[in-house]
Amino acid sequence: MDDDSPPPPPASPPPPPSGPSGAPGSPTDFLKGVVGKKVVVRLTSGVDYRGILSCLDGYMNIALEQTEEHVNGRVTNRYGDAFIRGNNVLYISAAEPL
């Protein structure tokens, strides 16, 4: 890391996980349970991303692994890793039993 060091990572304080954390059934509690699991992320556009949920933040920005992009039921792309900007997210649904 001498020459060519990358620019500093941006300061992006994600808001704390919303709500009083971890009440059973709450969004926070659900998210704790699905990290590392297979999920379907549907965007408001109707496009689905199926993959393993690596992590997410308070904006619903999402990191997925082994991701398949589905449009109208067809696989249209595959990504090893994918960052999805949270404002596009309609829902995150567990694709395996929790």
């Binding site: 709450s26 969004p27 649904s93 567990a94 694709a95």
Partner: peptide, 30 residues
Amino acid sequence: DDFVNMVLEDVTEYEITPEGRKSTKLGQTL
């Protein structure tokens, strides 16, 4: 939560597609 993000279980999604009304079953969903 305060944003009215909701966790639902035994979910059915209803949407309008070019082929008409469509419903999809989902498991636990945020």
